[in-house]
């Protein structure tokens, strides 16, 4: 591993995954990497607050002890590690987060801090799904809006560069505006979603207010805060 040529921008790769966490990829030497994390934290202290993070250890070779140390170091900085990737589960300290597998990359990019960029106008094309989207199905549409006439099942996932419209119940995950379109919205007839994300900002089922559950609702970005409001 050639740590000297690792460009600065690589201190972390924020990738939305199918379990939708952000993925950190530490490099050697670890101390340098941690310093850069610290720099990010001083710059915007709440950046990682409440966000599940996955630690991808495939680019470093650490002993079980080293991993434990790194995880507790990060936790000391308020960075919660949801799981590990790129490492064998056997021989790891039992107190460590679980080793995840089968994470699928997707296209979410996190803009930090929110830049006011001139973005190309959102493409006008759209995808219409006449049938329910079932558990385990994943629809990725990077050219605009997705409209689902039926429901989106628990464990199903819709990813769109534009807005997402669900005329049935949204029980699974909906990720709108994935290529940096913060104006994208998610609309549904009945909200029971497992996860909603717009332009990388997300809320999980637990964040969605009880009073909204099973009601018609929309999700949109108000600056860098996701709002979920009733539709009527």
């Amino acid at each position: 591993m050639d740590s000297k040529v690792v460009p600065k921008r690589q201190i972390m790769r924020l990738r939305g995954r199918s379990y939708v966490a952000f993925v950190f990829t530490p490099f050697m030497p670890i101390m340098n990497w941690l310093e850069e994390i610290d720099a990010t934290l001083t710059h915007s202290p709440d950046f990682f607050a409440g966000r599940p993070i996955v630690l991808d250890l495939s680019a470093v070779e650490l002993s079980s002890h080293g991993i434990t140390h790194l995880v507790s170091n990060l936790e000391g900085r308020g960075v919660r590690i949801l799981g590990l990737e790129g490492v064998e589960a056997s021989g790891l300290d039992s107190g460590l987060p679980p080793v995840l597998s089968g994470g699928r990359g997707c296209l979410i990019q996190q803009a930090e801090p929110k830049k006011v960029e001139v973005q190309p106008p959102p493409p006008s094309s759209s995808l219409l799904l006449q049938n329910p989207v079932r558990s385990g199905q994943r629809i990725v549409f990077t050219e605009g809006d997705v409209t689902v006439l039926g429901s989106v099942g628990s464990g199903a996932e819709i990813v769109a560069s534009g807005s997402i419209h669900v005329y049935g119940t949204l029980r699974g995950r909906a990720m709108a505006g994935i290529n940096g379109n913060s104006a994208a919205r998610i609309y549904c007839q009945k909200i029971e979603a497992e996860l909603l994300a717009i332009d990388g900002y997300y809320q999980t089922a637990e964040d969605i207010g009880e009073t909204l559950r099973r009601q018609p609702a929309q999700a949109w970005l108000d600056g860098d805060v996701m709002r979920i409001t009733p539709l009527n």
Binding site: V133, R134, S135, G136, Q137, G153, S154, G155, A156
Partner: peptide, 8 residues
Amino acid sequence: RDADRIIG
């Protein structure tokens, strides 16, 4: 949920 998956 598994049934939903199978239907898909």
